[in-house]
Structures are given as structure tokens and as C-alpha cells.
């Protein structure tokens, strides 16, 4: 009887959940939200590539890790702060993305999914292992004066590094939506994503638009990587983890939806942050994957799921 009662108590969801410290909750939400800008940018890159080419970029996280190493090289060798260096990282990844699409992805755009997956996993492996050879297995972190600074909003602590990361990520997301909705190339990308055959019929150079979309997607994840390098310790295998998080976000938001990737990034980041505070830092993924399962049960197409961008 007494044992039964105790079991009952143990099964109650998170006893501390009943006596939540509101400051702690706000703190976790704020820091999760600020970190989420980077997740959004990363997922937008993935969803753009998927939307235009219907190819899942399994090398997405590894591209991001390379951008982190580029930021690290810039900071340690050339004294460039990552909050400036992200422009260079994005530019280098733009070129790399264009080349990867033209040389490799373009060959398998019309191939069955399993063949696309094989190629993209191969690209991921090559990227991860060249990073291992070039930079070694030790975790790295980029130091910048901003991460040491903090603001206090009443009892809530705001890390200035996260705040700047968030602001830049949001600004880049806005710039990208302006590009996609207002510029001619951006509209062509949306048109190809919406109806590839229709775009070809009216004379769109679908191959060129696809290569540019891959390049822009890689630039997004490149900027995200450089911006997050001061906040997140990284090593070559971090890429796989980031790829998985990106897929998770894109599926939660709805495949191919830009708004979905944006909202999904913030949501997953806040969920992970709350999970880290109230469960255990090593269980933060549990929360975001639980979120994925719930969303797939309730809305199988994702939060903003439609078929195109």
C-alpha cells in the first residue's frame, strides 16, 4: 500500500514541474529563443535545398561544422571576430555549395531517393573526415569578447553573445525572405519549388536555379555555423548531430516550408533549453524528438506543411 503510493508519486510528471520557479522558466525560454535564431537559419537552408531539388542534404550539418572551423580559423589565425567573419564563412560555403550541386548533386536530382541518400551521405562522410584530418578530434570553441558580457533584465540573465547571434540570424532570415519574394532569381527558386515542370516549360534554367538554391542554402548554414561557433563547442562528429537536428526542425515545421523552418527552429531550441533545465542537459534531444512525435501525430504534414515553399 505504502509502496503503491510511492510509485504513484514517482510517476507524477516532474515533481519540480509543480513548483516551477517562474524565473527559471523565463530564463530557459529566453536563452532557448536566442539560440533558436541559428537553428532557424540552419533549417531554412535545408528546407530551401529540399524545396527546390527534392533532395535531402545529409551533409548539411557537416557543412555547418566546416563553417564553424572557418570561423575558428578566422578568429585564431587572422583575429577576425566570428560576428564579422560569418560573412566570409557564408561566402565560402556559397561557392562550395554551388560546386557541390554542379559537380555531384545535379547528377542525381532525378534519381530515386535511396541513390540520392547514398551520395549525400558520402559527401557528409568526406566532409567530416577531412575536418578530422585537418583539425583533429579535440573539441574547439571560438572565443569572442561578446560571450563574456551579460545583461540583466530584472532577474533574467541575457548572454550578449546569444543576443547578437540571434539578431544577426533574424536579420539574415529577413534578408533571405526579401530575396525569395522580391528578387527575380528568388522568385524563380520558389517557382521551381512550386512546380519544377511548369518552371521548365516557361523557360526557366532549372539547373542554374538549382545550383544557386544549393549555394544559398549552404550559405545560410555557413552563416549559422559561424554565428554559433562562440556558443557551442564543436568537433568533426558534431555535424551528424546538427544534421539530425536540422531534419527534426524541418519535419516539425513542414517539409519545404520556410515559415515552418523558422518557427520550428525557435520551437526546438526552446524545447531543448527547457529540457536541459528541467530534466537533464544530456536529455535535451529527448524533448525535441518527443516534440517531433507529438507533432507528427497531430499534424502529419508538420506545423506549416504544404508541398512547396
Amino acid at each position: 500500500m505504502a509502496e503503491g503510493l510511492r510509485a504513484e508519486q514517482v510517476r507524477l510528471p516532474a515533481p519540480q514541474g509543480l513548483i516551477l520557479d517562474p524565473v527559471l522558466v523565463v530564463q530557459a525560454v529566453v536563452s532557448g529563443l536566442l539560440f533558436g535564431g541559428v537553428y532557424s537559419l540552419m533549417a531554412i537552408g535545408l528546407t530551401l535545398i529540399f524545396g527546390v531539388m527534392r533532395v535531402v542534404n545529409f551533409a548539411h550539418g557537416d557543412l555547418m561544422v566546416w563553417a564553424m572551423y572557418l570561423a575558428w580559423l578566422g578568429a585564431t589565425r587572422f583575429g577576425v571576430d566570428p560576428y564579422v567573419g560569418f560573412v566570409g564563412a557564408a561566402a565560402i560555403l556559397f561557392v562550395a555549395g554551388f560546386a557541390i550541386q554542379r559537380q555531384l548533386v545535379d547528377r542525381i536530382v532525378d534519381a530515386p531517393h535511396e541513390m540520392q541518400i547514398l551520395l549525400m551521405l558520402g559527401v557528409a562522410l568526406v566532409l567530416e573526415n577531412t575536418a578530422l584530418v585537418a583539425f583533429g578530434p579535440e573539441p574547439q570553441r571560438v572565443r569572442t569578447p561578446l560571450t563574456q558580457a551579460a545583461l540583466w533584465l530584472g532577474p533574467v540573465f541575457v548572454d550578449v553573445g546569444r543576443l547578437v547571434t540571434f539578431a544577426v540570424a533574424i536579420a539574415l532570415t529577413l534578408a533571405l525572405s526579401l530575396f525569395l519574394y522580391r528578387s527575380d532569381i528568388g522568385r524563380q527558386m520558389r517557382a521551381v519549388a512550386d512546380n519544377g515542370y511548369g518552371a521548365q516549360v516557361i523557360g526557366t534554367d532549372v539547373r542554374r536555379i538549382s545550383a544557386l538554391a544549393f549555394a544559398v542554402g549552404a550559405a545560410c548554414v555557413g552563416a549559422a555555423g559561424a554565428l554559433v561557433a562562440p556558443l557551442l563547442p564543436f568537433q568533426p562528429p558534431t555535424g551528424l548531430q546538427l544534421s539530425v537536428t536540422s531534419f527534426n526542425i524541418v519535419i516539425i515545421g513542414g517539409m519545404g516550408s520556410l515559415l515552418g523552418a523558422f518557427m520550428g527552429g525557435l520551437l526546438v531550441s526552446v524545447a531543448e533549453s527547457l529540457g536541459a533545465v528541467f530534466l537533464n542537459p544530456s536529455m535535451k534531444e529527448l524533448v525535441s524528438f518527443a516534440l517531433l512525435v507529438v507533432i507528427l501525430l497531430v499534424r502529419p504534414a508538420g506545423l506549416f506543411g504544404r508541398r512547396a515553399i
Partner: peptide, 10 residues
């Protein structure tokens, strides 16, 4: 083209 092939979400 047959079936019009517009861009439905634009």
C-alpha cells in the same frame, strides 16, 4: 502545357 502547370502557391 496540358494541365496548365501554374505555380499554385504564388
Amino acid at each position: 502545357p496540358e494541365g496548365r502547370q501554374l505555380f499554385p502557391t504564388m
